[in-house]
């Protein structure tokens, strides 16, 4: 590889890693889980209450102690289940084969200040 190419790839790598760091550390903890199933809103659930959520015949979610995970899924790759628990705002679990998307949302938007 040429020097210029190595520099270009290095910059790409560093910016991607930086983006990842921001995503994983800057996040506040999520308040509610929004579940989309088959491109439609299936429901929103507070993370404060423990419960098991069945989605259709294919997936089961589990909420406990402010975090959520895919407990069971019928998809072949099981990536959503292996991902384990998530708890930060903006994190998500996506089961592509069954079209289930779980997104963690915070409370209302926070502003530094409002100017009229």
């Amino acid at each position: 590889m040429k020097k210029k190419e190595i520099i270009f790839v290095f910059i790409l790598l560093v910016s991607a890693l930086g983006w990842l760091m921001v995503q994983s550390f800057a996040g506040k903890s999520g308040e509610t889980a929004r579940v989309d199933y088959d491109n439609r809103l299936y429901g929103t659930y507070p993370l404060s209450r423990e419960r098991i959520i069945k989605i259709g015949e294919s997936n089961t979610l589990e909420i406990t102690e402010g975090k959520i995970r895919m407990k069971e899924a019928t998809c072949p790759d099981q990536i959503c289940r292996k991902q384990g628990w998530i708890k930060r705002k903006g994190e998500s679990i996506i089961c592509l084969p069954n079209k289930v998307i779980v997104t963690l949302e915070g409370t209302e938007e926070e502003f530094d200040g409002v100017i009229n």
Partner: peptide
Amino acid sequence: AYLLLEQLIVWNYFPVLLVSGIITGG
């Protein structure tokens, strides 16, 4: 994935996929 799922959240995977594209492509 964005077209099929209509969810902006999938773009959160962009940095991970960028890194993996560089490593596997390399």
